[in-house]
């Protein structure tokens, strides 16, 4: 396999949530990022956070229909981690990085902007979920996050049938939507 094919199959694995692919990407790239962050006033915990974030950015990117592989995974991850870390350093007023790997880099501004927006949305959504109260919160989480089926949920939550559970789910969803959009529009 050429490098290109290897990388392509890794990305395909990532999109499929294949643990082996994720493991390989971790093994091949984590130590570089860890080194970069430690060298630039970070702790291992920071490296862990940043790397995870960059994996999510890569995942989102690989998932998008417009995606083509224009650089190596390591170049991409390094570019993303670097940006994320610089941003965090600036925010916390910790020193500007003095050391940098002489690695190739690619522009990642667009996807990072999008990623940040997405993160903000998720925060709002989670916040709205927490304000929803029980059993609505657990019900929605069971369906959308744990991906349980309606019959399973009906059994878990003690509804007589899936149809009732579904009606309840929609009621909760409508409430959640109201809370979410009330804040969402404020933010915008």
């Amino acid at each position: 396999m050429t490098i290109f094919e290897q990388e392509k199959s890794l990305l395909e694995g990532l999109v499929r949530n294949d643990s082996d692919a994720i493991e390989t990407i971790y093994k091949e790239n984590f130590s570089t990022i860890l080194g970069f962050i430690l060298k630039n006033n970070g702790y291992p915990e920071d490296a862990r956070d940043i790397f995870q974030e960059s994996m999510i950015v890569l995942y989102e990117k690989a998932k998008s229909s417009s995606f083509t592989l224009s650089c190596q995974i390591k170049t991409y991850l390094y570019s993303v981690c670097r940006r994320l870390w610089l941003k965090r350093l600036q925010k916390s007023n910790r020193y500007y990085p003095s050391y940098e790997l002489a690695e190739e880099m690619v522009a990642v501004d667009e996807e990072l902007e999008w990623h940040e927006k997405q993160n903000d949305d998720f925060l709002l959504l989670e916040d709205a979920l927490s304000k929803l109260g029980e059993p609505c919160k657990s019900l929605l989480e069971a369906f959308y996050i744990q991906r349980k089926t309606m019959p399973e949920i009906a059994a878990d939550f003690g509804y007589t049938n899936a149809e009732n559970a579904k009606t309840q789910k929609y009621k909760c969803l409508v409430r959640l939507k109201k809370i979410f959009f009330a804040q969402y529009k404020n933010v915008d």
Partner: peptide, 23 residues
């Protein structure tokens, strides 16, 4: 769509954590 993506994101984070801990 946001709900779906949130679910997907949480699953991915969970998986990343597991891989990290395993390694």
């Amino acid at each position: 769509g946001e709900m779906d993506k949130l679910g997907e994101r949480k699953a991915l984070r969970h998986q990343l954590h597991e891989v990290e801990n395993k390694l």
